[in-house]
């Protein structure tokens, strides 16, 4: 898998040479940003065993922080150097993650969904009606990506590489986190919380840490999203994006960090092009049917199905070799 991953990264690095600006910007970069957000969700689902609807909120916290502390056209906020703004954004999204974790620490399954959904909707209505910080319905616009270390992130190629780098970093962080002692404790809490407590590890800080970590990852996607869209408003943290993220995570597959990105690109392609291929009056129905088909045909997500197919083929290959050896020996 690691060789495959490396190959994918190499392909993603050389891909911009072959594709138009639209594909670079609106398909690839957008998919990777959505993928990072979905990664924060699949991380929680796979390792802590909870489904969180608050990931878009956490990304939104980071996004609004960037908007508030960057030059924008609304006349709100304080201008800070971009590095400070990014650091604050990630700090706030991490703290917000910890806050969500502190509220949802005792709940799993449908209860964690309800609590996180309630938090995200509360945040949505708050941003929509607060004008002193969030500028209400209209939100912030005219935010531009900064010039970082001499190169402008507004350039789509530079921004693509920055996004790719962030995604790789996010994936790496998730893998490292899950194999660290804290990450193992998180998985322990998921599998047998009582036993974890019995050996003397308190579960609450572990759960909060997992949520905070997912807030950090979601915050990365929130920062990139604001720079790409050049705007953020209450719509960006509403129910629609929240559900889209769940769809992405489910169709991609939850088991491996890569699944989030495969789900994201699948979702973006469907979302962008179905309206061209089918009747525009019914395009949402087609999107729904395609997603339904993916979920039914590949309950493990696209990546999960691919991996299990691979395993099956390998098993088949092994069996064939064994048979061949057996036959050869018999002869």
């Amino acid at each position: 898998m690691s060789r495959t991953l490396l190959l994918i990264v190499v392909i993603l690095i050389i891909l911009p040479a072959f594709i138009s600006d639209f594909w670079l910007n609106q398909i690839l970069t957008r998919s990777i940003i959505l993928g990072i957000a979905a990664l924060s969700l699949t991380f929680l689902t796979t390792y802590l065993g909870v489904v969180s609807f608050a990931q878009i909120t956490l990304a939104g916290v980071a996004g609004y922080t960037i908007a508030y502390f960057s030059p924008n056209t609304t006349g709100l906020g304080i201008e800070l150097p971009w590095l400070f703004a990014v650091a604050l954004a990630l700090l706030f999204s991490t703290l917000a993650g910890a806050f969500v974790g502190a509220i949802a620490k005792k709940s799993v399954g449908i209860y964690s969904i309800m609590i996180t959904l309630a938090i995200s909707m509360a945040f949505f209505y708050f941003t929509r009606q607060n004008y002193s910080i969030f500028n209400g319905w209209t939100g912030f616009s005219g935010i531009t990506a900064p010039v970082a270390f001499g190169v402008s992130l507004e350039d789509s190629l530079v921004f693509y590489y920055a996004t790719l780098l962030s995604a790789t970093a996010a994936g790496y962080l998730v893998v490292k986190f899950t194999s660290s002692p804290l990450g193992l404790a998180v998985q322990g809490v998921k599998d047998a919380a009582r036993r974890v407590r019995a050996i003397g590890i308190p579960t609450t800080p572990v759960i909060i840490a997992a949520y905070a970590f997912s807030g950090f990852i979601a915050g990365m996607s929130g920062v990139l999203n604001v720079w790409q869209q050049e705007r953020i408003s209450s719509f960006s943290v509403g129910l629609g994006p929240t559900i889209d993220l769940l769809i992405i995570a489910v169709i991609g597959g939850m088991r491996h960090p890569l699944g989030a990105f495969i789900g994201a690109i699948t979702y973006v392609l469907i979302d962008t092009f179905v309206i061209d291929l089918f009747s525009r009056d019914r395009f949402n129905m087609i999107i729904g049917l395609v997603l339904l088909f993916i979920v039914m045909a590949a309950p493990q997500g696209i990546l999960g199905s691919f991996l299990s197919a691979q395993k099956r083929i390998r098993k088949y290959d092994n069996n064939a070799i064994k048979r061949k050896i057996k036959n050869d020996c018999e002869i």
Binding site: R231, S233, F283
Partner: peptide, 22 residues
């Protein structure tokens, strides 16, 4: 060429970008 938005500014911008760039 018709594109749909969902009343949100973000979706209108995405629709316009697709029309312009693609």
């Amino acid at each position: 060429i018709v594109m749909s938005s969902d009343a949100s500014p973000d979706s209108a911008v995405n629709a316009a970008r697709k029309l312009i760039d693609h």
